[in-house]
């Protein structure tokens, strides 16, 4: 790591108002310390927010069917919360199927959604080409690189790096809102507007300003007992998704009244399959319908020789997740 100045402000307001260019917030450190050791991230200051105001941002609060979660809540705590597991199992699944127990103890859900890609050409600075690390330098993956793990949705000719997380797929499916404390005070943002596609500037991954601090996530309607997160990966645990689906259903008799679909492992950002949802809404919950929706979800896929399988796998994962969700108790 390069030298940095370490700060541990007492309050969120202190953290934001004393923010200086070149600084980074961090809490669990599972992304930050990892990437600093690789010289991929090199903040001049590290602002340790893990203990802000004695746990003020570590909470899980229900109000009717609305759920609000503090950004400094450890992944483990949210994954193991009985009420969350019962009322919106998708959220719980997306957490306990991620990473390892130790990492889930350390990482907080705010940082979790901002984790960086596992693209090997991003993580290793000895590769000259990486538009995400060094805008304008090119993309080693697209220039003859290894691309089995890369994205097929939301790609550009600049970058095909996969968004690696799981939890964000559930948040995007649930229409979550991000509560932010910025230099101009608090504001909120649709979770769907947090991440940006890797178009001209793949290094810009979110719409946040550097000093913006995520305080909480809120979900106005989190009552989806019929929901799940299905993650398909090369080994049974402790592996990134090859394809995953966060799916939720609300049934009105045999008709789909509401459906939510978040796709992981296949896209450059936490991916909401809105057209597929629209195709399902108001129709029957049948395998044929699910397969049609999956075709719609992946219609815009762009592939390489090595990751072309993710289209088929992504579709099958989505269909299976929907079938299993449909079988759940509503």
């Amino acid at each position: 790591m390069r030298p940095f100045h370490y700060d541990k402000p007492a309050t969120a307001t202190d953290a934001v108002t004393n923010f200086r260019p070149g600084a980074q917030y961090f809490a669990g450190g599972t992304t930050m310390v990892d990437l600093m050791k690789l010289d991929v991230m090199k903040p001049a200051r590290l602002i340790d927010i893990s203990g802000l105001e004695k746990g003020r941002y570590d909470f899980i609060k229900w109000s009717g069917k609305s759920l609000r979660i503090g950004a400094l809540t450890p992944m483990t705590k949210l994954a193991d919360d009985d009420k969350v597991r019962a009322r919106v199992p998708m959220l719980s699944d997306a957490l306990w199927l991620a990473a390892s127990p130790q990492i889930r103890n350390m990482a907080r859900i705010g940082g979790n959604v901002l984790q960086r890609t596992r693209c090997p050409y991003f993580r290793d600075t000895s590769y000259e080409q990486c538009n995400k690390r060094k805008p304008g330098s090119g993309c080693a993956a697209l220039d003859g690189g290894v691309t089995r793990h890369h994205a097929v949705l939301g790609t550009s000719d600049k970058c095909i790096a996969t968004y690696p997380g799981d939890f964000a797929q559930a948040l995007v499916a649930l229409d979550a809102v991000v509560e932010i404390l910025g230099e101009d005070g608090p504001r909120s943002l649709r979770f769907a507007d947090l991440h940006v596609l890797p178009e001209a500037r793949p290094d810009r991954e979110t719409t946040l300003a550097p000093s913006d601090l995520i305080i909480a996530f809120s979900i106005e309607d989190a009552d989806f007992p019929r929901s799940k997160y299905l993650k398909i990966r090369d080994r049974e645990s402790y592996a990134y998704a090859l394809a995953s689906t966060a799916s939720a259903l609300r049934m009105d008799g045999n008709t789909i009244a509401d459906v939510r679909l978040g796709l992981g492992g296949v896209a450059t950002t936490p991916w909401r399959a809105r057209e597929a949802e629209a195709a399902l809404r108001g129709g029957p919950a049948t395998e044929a319908q699910f397969a049609r929706a999956a075709d719609i979800a992946f219609a815009g896929a762009s592939t390489t020789d090595e990751n072309a399988f993710k289209v088929e796998l992504g579709k099958r994962t989505m269909v299976r997740s929907l079938l299993e969700t449909a079988r759940m108790e509503g």
């Binding site: 260019p21 070149g22 980074q24 917030y25 961090f26 809490a27 992304t31 930050m32 990437l35 991230m41 090199k42 903040p43 001049a44 927010i49 950004a71 400094l72 907080r108 705010g110 940082g111 901002l114 984790q115 960086r116 995400k132 690390r133 060094k134 805008p135 304008g136 330098s137 290094d203 991954e205 979110t206 946040l208 550097p210 913006d212 601090l213 995520i214």
Partner: peptide
């Protein structure tokens, strides 16, 4: 918790 990249444009300018 905002694990954004530091300003990479600065890095590339520096590179020149």
């Amino acid at each position: 918790m905002a694990d954004r990249s530091p300003s990479f444009d600065q890095v590339s300018r520096r590179g020149l």
